[in-house]
């Protein structure tokens, strides 16, 4: 990154950064257009109803968005059902994983003494919990539980690891000035760990989104993008299935962008935010 001029750090290089941003957007639009053209050509070459062209996807999208699906649920109902489940489960994951990660990071003996309990759970994929979740829970609770499991470990582990990154000298600055433990937690530990927490949250969000679709595919409910896709797959209506897939990709992407935006605001003090 270029050195900033005196007076207004980080803001004086805005026009340059904006120019670069526009160029990047242009490149992305171009590559998207090329991908669509290749798709269209390939579909025409194959000429099968199981390989729809982009325009058919658009038609299916318009149909789903304006008239809803075969069961009478609108596309927005399906999307919102999935998003709500993810937000609730992910939120619970953050609420539990961050304090627990901080606690165990600050008291490594606590973690060392409970590893045998915690770690095996990490290696049970959330999807493997689906059968139990179907027995024990229904509705929103079932999904919130599964997504919680998917989001918890990435956030917990990165928080735990982040605490180890706290510089002893930064703690010492607090201690020599007579700071309390709480002050050090708030003003030294949390700012240091924050980038790791955010990185863990982005990984956790990815896992959460992955889990929701799998959980909805498993059935038992009438809404959700996964549900909608499986309905259309049974009818062998490929374009509608693909609409579901693309929406899942788009919503996941947008959620990640929101987290990145928050990161950029929070970490203005860093050289750059990694991808």
């Amino acid at each position: 990154m270029a050195a900033t001029t005196k007076g207004d750090a980080g803001r004086s290089d805005m026009p340059e950064a904006m120019g670069a941003g526009i160029r990047i957007v242009a490149w992305n639009v171009l590559s998207l257009a090329i991908a669509l053209v290749i798709w269209q050509l390939a579909s025409r070459a194959v000429g099968s109803p199981f390989f729809p062209a982009p325009m058919q996807i658009v038609d299916a999208f318009i149909q789903l968005a304006t008239r809803g699906d075969t069961t009478g649920h609108s596309l927005w109902e399906h999307s919102w059902a999935s998003i709500e489940r993810v937000l609730v489960g992910f939120g619970l994951g953050v609420i539990f994983a961050v304090p627990l990660g901080l606690l165990m990071g600050l008291y490594p003996k606590l973690y060392a003494g409970t590893r045998a309990v915690i770690e095996p759970f990490r290696f049970i994929p959330p999807i493997a919990w689906i059968p139990l979740a179907i027995i024990f829970f229904s509705g929103l609770t079932r999904f919130a539980f599964l997504i919680f499991l998917g989001a918890f470990f990435p956030i917990f582990t990165s928080t735990l690891v982040g605490v180890a990154r706290v510089e002893p000298i930064h703690r010492k600055v607090g201690i020599v000035h007579g700071a309390s433990k709480l002050w050090i937690l708030r003003h030294v530990v949390i700012p240091t760990v924050m980038p790791d927490i955010m990185a863990g949250m982005r990984v956790g969000l990815g896992t959460a989104w992955l889990t929701i679709v799998a959980a909805e595919l498993a059935g038992g409910i009438s809404t959700g993008l996964g549900r909608m896709m499986i309905n259309y797959a049974e009818l062998i209506m490929v374009p509608h299935v693909i609409v579901g897939m693309l929406l899942i990709g788009l919503i996941g992407f947008l959620m990640n962008e929101v987290l990145l935006l928050i990161e950029r605001r929070l970490f203005r003090w860093r050289w750059q935010v990694s991808l």
């Binding site: 000298i169 600055v173 030294v188 240091t192 003090w269 860093r270």
Partner: peptide, 9 residues
């Protein structure tokens, strides 16, 4: 301190 001790954030 001898070593850098400012808070980067």
């Amino acid at each position: 301190f001898q070593e850098p001790s400012t808070f980067p954030w």
